[in-house]
C-alpha cells in the first residue's frame, strides 16, 4: 500500500470539503473494498478521508412508507432493520447473501454501491485492463471470464458490478443522494452506474468529489412479496454468478405488478425493464415467466467461459418468479 495522508471527517461538510480540496482523495467507509484494493496497488489515493464515524447511520421511515437510509448504515444493520425485513424483504435478503457476517458489519451502504469489480484481471497489476489502466486492453475477454458480464458489455470491458444490495435497490426504484461542495443532487440508482463503452474506467456518474449521503427507497406495495435469489459456486460467501431481485403481485391469475433486476451479469445492477414489460398484465404462468426472461436476455452475448450465464439467468428469473407466485398465493 502506498503512503497517504489520513483525514478523519466528523461530518459531511468536512468530508466533502476535504475531497474537493485534495485531488486524489478517496472516501473511506467500511474499508472492505478500498483497503483491499489499496493493498493490491489498484487504488492509490494520496489522501484518505475517513467517513466511518460520520453520523449518517439512520434508517428513517418516509411519510409515504418508504425508507431513507443513511450512507454509513452498515450492511448488517440495514438487513436486520424491521422495516426492511417486513416491507422490502428483497433488500434484506440481498444484503444477507453478500460477503460474510464480519464484512457486513463493516460494509456501508455507500461503499457497497461503489465497490469495484471482482474481474480477475482488474486486480492483477501484471494484466492488461482498460478499467484499471485505460487503453491497455482487456485480458479477461480472451482469458478467464467465468464471472464476467453478458449484458451491457463492450469490446473494451466485460466486468460485472459485484454488489448484491444494489440489485435489490435497482428493483426497488431507489434514489441515491449525493453531496459535494456544489450542493446536493438526487440520482436514480439505475442511473448511478455507467456501461463501459470505450471508457470502462468511468464507472459511475458521480464526480470525484461527491459523497453519497443517503439512499431513498420509495414505498412499494409489490415489494412486500419480493425475494432475492443468488446463484453461486459455494453455498455461501461467494459472489453471484447470477442473481435475481424480484417482486410480484398477481391478481386473478394475471401479473398486476412486477419488478425484476439482475446481478452478476452486467456492469451495473441490471433492471430488467423488458421482462417487466412482457410480464405486466400477462398470465402469471411459467410460460410468461420464460417469455419475459427470453425477452430480457435477447440481446445478451456471452464469451466461451460465461455463455452459460445467459441460460442460467433465464432459469433463475423463472424460478424466482415461480416461487414468488407460490408465496404470493400463500400469503
Amino acid at each position: 500500500m502506498r503512503p497517504f495522508a489520513y483525514v478523519s471527517a466528523p461530518d459531511v461538510d468536512t468530508a466533502v470539503r476535504a475531497i474537493a480540496e485534495q485531488p486524489g482523495a478517496k472516501l473511506l467507509g467500511g474499508g472492505t473494498n478500498l483497503v483491499d484494493l489499496m493493498r493490491q496497488d489498484v487504488e492509490r489515493p494520496t489522501t484518505v478521508v475517513d467517513i466511518s464515524s460520520v453520523p449518517l447511520t439512520g434508517v428513517d421511515e418516509l411519510p409515504d412508507g418508504g425508507l431513507r437510509i443513511g450512507a454509513l448504515v452498515r450492511n448488517s444493520h440495514l438487513a436486520a432493520h424491521p422495516l426492511v425485513r417486513t416491507r422490502f424483504p428483497v433488500l434484506a435478503q440481498a444484503l444477507l447473501s453478500g460477503a460474510s457476517g464480519q464484512l457486513r458489519n463493516m460494509a456501508t451502504v455507500g461503499g457497497n454501491l461503489l465497490q469495484r469489480t471482482r474481474c480477475l484481471y482488474f486486480v492483477d497489476g501484471a494484466a492488461a485492463c482498460n478499467k484499471r489502466e485505460p487503453g491497455s486492453g482487456c485480458d479477461a475477454i480472451g482469458g478467464f471470464h467465468r464471472g464476467n458480464a453478458v449484458l451491457g458489455t463492450s469490446e473494451h470491458c466485460v466486468a460485472t458490478h459485484p454488489s448484491d444490495m444494489a440489485v435489490a435497490l435497482a428493483a426497488l426504484d431507489a434514489v441515491v443522494e449525493a453531496q459535494s461542495v456544489r450542493g446536493t443532487r438526487r440520482i436514480p440508482l439505475v442511473e448511478l452506474h455507467r456501461l463501459p463503452g470505450d471508457t470502462p474506467h468511468l464507472e459511475t456518474v458521480l464526480d470525484a468529489d461527491e459523497l453519497i449521503t443517503a439512499v431513498e427507497v420509495p414505498a412499494s406495495a409489490v415489494a412486500a412479496t419480493s425475494r432475492y435469489r443468488k446463484v453461486r459456486d459455494r453455498a455461501s460467501f461467494a459472489f453471484a454468478l447470477v442473481s435475481v431481485a424480484a417482486a410480484l403481485d398477481v391478481e386473478d391469475g394475471a401479473v398486476s405488478a412486477v419488478r425484476v433486476a439482475l446481478g452478476g451479469v452486467a456492469p451495473k445492477p441490471w433492471r430488467a425493464y423488458e421482462a417487466e414489460r412482457v410480464l405486466t398484465g400477462a398470465p402469471a404462468t411459467e410460460e410468461s415467466f420464460r417469455a419475459a426472461a427470453e425477452a430480457e436476455l435477447a440481446d445478451a452475448s456471452g464469451l466461451p467461459g460465461n455463455d452459460f450465464k445467459i441460460e442460467l439467468a433465464r432459469r433463475t428469473i423463472v424460478a424466482t418468479l415461480r416461487q414468488l407466485r407460490v408465496e404470493g398465493g400463500a400469503a
Binding site: D233, R234, A235, S236, F237, A238
Partner: peptide
C-alpha cells in the same frame, strides 16, 4: 479459489 465454507 473456492475451498468449502461451513455452509457447504
Amino acid at each position: 479459489y473456492h475451498v468449502p465454507v461451513h455452509a457447504d
